[in-house]
């Protein structure tokens, strides 16, 4: 068996709380182990080499969306990225577009909450407090599956970090926001009309700001059909706004 690979990890370092800190890349050497993910590599690095390194992992199973970062130029979930799929030199940067907390840790939570509030991205039910003793309302089984398909978004922020429009318009809601409108628009339990959705996403900060570069679609870790959803939503909003 061949000797394990030595990996060079170039990691973005900066602690905005520390006046002495300046943004820079720091290089660490890590010995690759079988099945090593970036979660395992960074955890080992922090345990053994540099206890000050800041990053965010929660589920470490690709479910929670905490660990989006730019890996060799591409936003992705670090926890489920195997080092063996990458070259021996790996550069890790925090997701752009979100406020930096430190090193690889960004504040995507505040961004997502603000987006949710702006788009009122929750189900607007006719009766939010139904009689819970009664049978539930029915739904077509295929429609339920279609809604879940869009409900699978984990708000990891990869689509926002990869978005060309976001670089120019900081108020752009991103594919994550447009997908939510598509999701609630598909749900017959939501009482909002297309005209009401138009008020939320009918401008340049919404669906008409999208330049259709569609990196969002390419980087989405959940492989959501963002390209199709944005196109459908745009057509629907054109009709609603006409």
């Amino acid at each position: 068996m061949s000797a394990p690979r030595q990996i060079r990890l170039n990691v973005f370092r900066h602690n905005p709380q520390d006046p002495a800190s300046t943004p820079h890349l720091q290089t660490y050497l890590v010995e690759e182990a079988p099945g090593m993910t970036l979660f395992l590599a960074l955890s080992e690095l922090r345990e053994r080499q540099d206890p000050s390194l800041a990053f965010d992992f929660v589920c470490r199973a690709g479910i929670c969306g905490s660990c989006g970062m730019v890996v060799n130029g591409r936003p992705r979930l670090a926890c489920r990225t195997l080092t063996q799929e990458l070259p021996a030199e790996i550069t890790l940067l925090p997701l752009p577009a979100f406020a930096l907390i430190a090193d690889l840790s960004v504040d995507s939570g505040s961004w997502m909450r603000a987006m949710t509030e702006r788009l009122q991205a929750w189900l607007h039910a006719a009766d939010p407090a139904p009689d819970l003793s009664r049978l539930e309302a029915r739904m077509d089984p295929d429609l339920a599956d279609q809604i879940y398909e869009l409900d699978r978004c984990i708000e990891c922020g990869c689509c926002v970090a990869a978005c060309g429009t976001v670089q120019m318009r900081h108020d752009f809601v991103g594919a994550v926001g447009l997908n939510k409108i598509a999701r609630f628009g598909l749900d017959p339990r939501d009482t909002r009309s297309d005209a009401e959705f138009y008020d939320l996403v009918g401008g340049d900060e919404g669906v008409f700001g999208c330049m259709t570069l569609l990196a969002c679609h390419d980087v989405c870790p959940k492989e959501l059909p963002l390209q199709t959803q944005i196109a459908f939503l745009r057509r629907r909003m054109l009709r609603a706004g006409a």
């Binding site: 189900l123 139904p130 819970l132 309302a137 029915r138 739904m139 077509d140 339920a144 599956d145 749900d187």
Partner: peptide
Amino acid sequence: APKAVRELAAWGVPWSRVR
């Protein structure tokens, strides 16, 4: 529990359905 699952249905959870 049945009340909780039905409340969640009313709040938008896309529960898998019987066919």
